[in-house]
């Protein structure tokens, strides 16, 4: 009966994962491997294709002050506008992750302040994990899989923009070698969210209890879903250490952008999350 409960939990989390996250790993891998005939993404590999891609997805224009427009080169403007639309998408993704978190059995019964803390510290880790299925060694899908942006293009942007994605590619290529599927991912994301060691938590015990149940469910899931993959559970959990470092570095880069880019403005939700984070 206990393992039946753990299977039911896995099913439930997989269902809410499918409900809240529009681009699944299965769909992303089909697009990346060219297995869907109707879904060939537009490739952004230079500034010209970036402009075309922008027009294609009708990305919202970042309001620019007129007097600055003449001071700045057109390319600078494009980079800022692109990262501005990345921020809007990230904010949307935070709200999707929040809905997913609320669907984890027991989460909404936790102290509301602890729910906030778990999201504040967990959400960027979750977003990085969710980026992995969209990436391969050559680039990443963006805009719900409509666009493929090459890794080389991201590396060619001016500093510090060019340093933003490279660590995520390095992580993702290794993470993808574990070959988790969407149902495994759903449980892993819940484990990340339910971390009892986030700074400032008021009531750790119920969080640890919830996480323990999800961990059991993940362990069972991986054994059943990947019977030939030795120590997969341990390998997946080890990724959580890399994730914390990635988030620390990412937040530092964002701080740097705030100090160096005149026209940089951080989305209010992302500001809330990153303020006093690490």
């Amino acid at each position: 009966p206990e393992s039946a409960d753990l299977r039911a939990l896995a099913r439930q989390l997989y269902e809410s994962y499918l409900k809240y996250f529009p681009l699944t790993k299965a769909k992303a891998r089909a697009i990346l491997s060219g297995k869907t005939s109707d879904n060939t993404p537009f490739v952004i590999h230079d500034m010209k294709s970036l402009l075309e891609g922008e027009q294609m997805i009708n990305c919202r224009q970042m309001p620019m002050q007129e007097h600055r427009r003449s001071d700045m080169g057109i390319m600078h403007e494009v980079e800022l506008r692109f990262f501005h639309s990345c921020q809007s998408r990230s904010a949307e993704a935070v709200s999707e992750v929040t809905e997913f978190a609320k669907s984890i059995p027991g989460f909404v019964n936790l102290d509301l302040n602890d729910q906030v803390t778990l999201l504040k510290y967990g959400v960027i880790e979750v977003l990085i994990i969710m980026m992995a299925p969209l990436m391969n060694k050559d680039g990443t899908l963006i805009s719900y899989g409509q666009i493929f942006m090459t890794r080389e293009f991201l590396k060619s942007l001016r500093k510090p923009f060019c340093e933003m994605m490279e660590p995520k590619f390095e992580f993702s290529v290794k993470f993808n070698m574990l070959e988790l599927d969407d149902s495994d991912m759903a449980l892993f994301l819940a484990v990340i969210i339910l971390s009892g060691d986030r700074p400032g938590l008021l009531n750790v015990k119920p969080i640890e209890d919830l996480q323990e149940t999800v961990l059991h469910s993940l362990e069972l899931q991986l054994k059943m879903n990947h019977p030939d993959s030795l120590q997969l559970f341990a390998k997946v959990l080890q990724k959580m250490t890399d994730l914390r470092q990635l988030v620390t570095d990412h937040v530092q880069l964002i701080q740097l952008l705030k100090e160096t880019e005149v026209d940089w403005c951080l989305h209010p939700l992302l500001q809330e999350i990153m303020r006093d984070l690490y």
Binding site: S88, A91, E92, V94, S95, E96, T98, E99, K102, V108, L112, N113, Q115, V116, L119, K120, H267, P268, L269, E272, I273, R275
Partner: peptide
């Protein structure tokens, strides 16, 4: 609470995601 107004709103909002 003031520091995390939007997160609070997202968490307490019962069904549809709030307009960001």
């Amino acid at each position: 609470k003031e520091k995390h107004k939007i997160l609070h709103r997202l968490l307490q909002n019962s069904s549809s995601p709030v307009d960001l």
